[in-house]
Design a binder for these strands. Structure first.
Ligand code: MN
Ligand code: MN
Ligand code: ZN
Ligand code: ZN
Lengths: 146, 146
DNA sequence: AATTTACTGCAAACAAGTTGCAATTGCAAA
DNA sequence: TTTGCAATTGCAACTTGTTTGCAGTAAATT
């Protein structure tokens, strides 16, 4: 999925391709993981050549882009709402409740479950957000030392 | 898991078995699903014989009970943070993004994935929260009518 | 009963996200 | 290219959910 194809989808909607949208979109596109609105705001504010883009505008931009399906939202149990380019292949992280590290998994692993849900409930076009918690290998071993 | 056994775990901790804790705990215990702090507050306020229990106290009680592992928290993508008795067998719901209905699954289905995560990352004692979204069977069929 | 320490209510502070409004700007038709 | 309008913006104010400070109250333990 190219950045240009995302611009196209914006032009095809009633949305306008403004500097703000370009900055937010580019920021998310070049980011592999998801970001909070605040994180996007911070990056756009410093990295971009834009003098300033209000945090409110970032929220409104993300909402508009979500509405046309270019962006999607996930809930991170610690960081709250996060945003990412929609439809990309994804995986999930495991969060250590002791040291706070987030470890990324190789792949999503939930597709098979979604198939069962479709069969069991008749739901279609399923999506999901997941949070896994536990104690990471490092924290387990330092526990034994103490 | 009996209610009395939960009281015991509270007595064994540094916590005190107050009217407030009893009310919150009983409310959660007799509830099969999870509840938001506000929902717990509402139920305790009306149902219980307690004249009043401040919402702040409900939050502090839930935090304390979470800390000793009697209560656990899950993120509902629509309703926000919810609370439930920890360690009960559980399942998950699928949320229809069209009509908003929540359909309960028969079982959790994620244990097998947690085993893979343990093997892949060395994490232990995994827990999870999940949100599944899609379009429910009813909304799909009414779409065809229109 | 006296002591200790957790708990409570109330007010205030916070954080994330939303809304109203007037001024600005993208875009496309003329 | 100019014009007109709907989309967009910044700013301030607001809402909702949650947390904190503090002074008084109430469990447990002796
Ligand atoms: Mn996934
Ligand atoms: Mn589960
Ligand atoms: Zn760790
Ligand atoms: Zn539905």
């Amino acid at each position: 999925m190219t950045l240009e194809s995302l611009y196209e989808r914006i032009r095809d909607s009633s949305l306008r391709l403004t500097k703000g949208k370009l900055a937010v979109l580019e920021c998310l596109y070049h980011q592999h993981a998801s970001l909070t609105a605040q994180e996007i705001f911070d990056r756009v504010s410093t990295q971009s050549d834009l003098e300033s883009l209000d945090l409110v505008t970032v929220y409104r931009t993300l909402e508009a882009l979500t509405k046309i399906g270019v962006v999607e939202q996930v809930e991170h149990s610690v960081k709250g709402r996060k945003f990412q380019i929609a439809g990309r292949s994804h995986s999930h992280t495991v969060h250590c409740i002791v040291c706070g590290v987030d470890v990324e998994m190789k792949e999503c692993l939930l597709e098979s479950i979604e198939q069962k849900i479709e069969a069991q409930t008749g739901f279609r076009a399923l999506r999901h957000t997941v949070n896994f918690y536990g104690e990471c290998a490092l924290c387990i071993s330092s526990e034994h030392e103490a």
